[in-house]
């Protein structure tokens, strides 16, 4: 197992320093993961300031619980999971999810991938942030984090069907925003 070296210190050394509460090693850990984790926070938050709050809360959790990391899997994955859980907990109280009817979830047209190529990362991120808390959280958990609907239902306290319908609605709204932004029209409709 190759160890990541950051500023002349291995990941294990940084982790051990964080366990001891050494501020220098804590800052190293922050510098290692802050950019990646802030991207995660921005996806789950609906605005920039909320993402900052999530980042702060997540790193405090990481420093408080770093000794609980048992070396199973990558340390980055463990840190990421803490941030995702923090975001879910943060929005769980606000999110009022409900199952949509199947008729609403069906009949969506999915556009070809080239529509996205015209957009930048920032544009997509802004569109995701425009989604409501429930849609955004389910979309992030399923599409980007790769959780199943059952896992999402357990994490958010909703049923599997609700997770599915929320995801379908999120996809639909996201594609609608992409269409409005790019003017890309579905090929099947033109044909």
């Amino acid at each position: 197992m190759s160890s990541i070296v950051f500023q002349g210190n291995t990941e294990e050394q940084i982790r051990e320093g964080c366990v001891k509460g050494d501020r220098k090693y804590q800052q190293m850990l922050y510098n290692m993961f802050s950019s990646k984790m802030f991207g995660v926070c921005l996806r789950y938050a609906n605005e920039y300031n909320s993402a900052q709050d999530l980042l702060q809360e997540g790193f405090v959790k990481v420093f408080k619980n770093v000794e609980k990391f048992r070396g199973e899997g990558s340390f980055e994955g463990w840190v990421r999971r803490i941030f995702v859980n923090t975001a879910i907990e943060h929005y769980r109280k606000q999110v009022n999810l409900y199952a949509l009817h199947d008729t609403e979830a069906k009949g969506y047209e999915y556009y070809e991938g080239n529509a996205l190529e015209t957009l930048k990362h920032q544009d997509i991120l802004r569109m995701i942030q425009k989604l409501s808390d429930g849609y955004r959280t389910v979309f992030n958990l399923y599409v980007i984090e790769g959780f199943s609907h059952k896992e999402i239902g357990d994490m958010m306290g909703i049923s599997e069907g609700t997770s599915k319908s929320q995801l379908a609605r999120a996809r639909y709204l996201l594609q609608k925003m992409i269409t409005e932004a790019t003017g890309f029209v579905n090929q099947s409709q033109n044909a």
Binding site: Q27, S35, F38, Q52, Y111, I144
Partner: peptide, 27 residues
Amino acid sequence: KNFDRNIEQMMNENEVAPPFGMWNRIA
């Protein structure tokens, strides 16, 4: 699936630097 994969790649490939002074808040 293609739609999902494209968005996933776009989100994971890009990193966003946190604002200056964020570490001071955490510390």
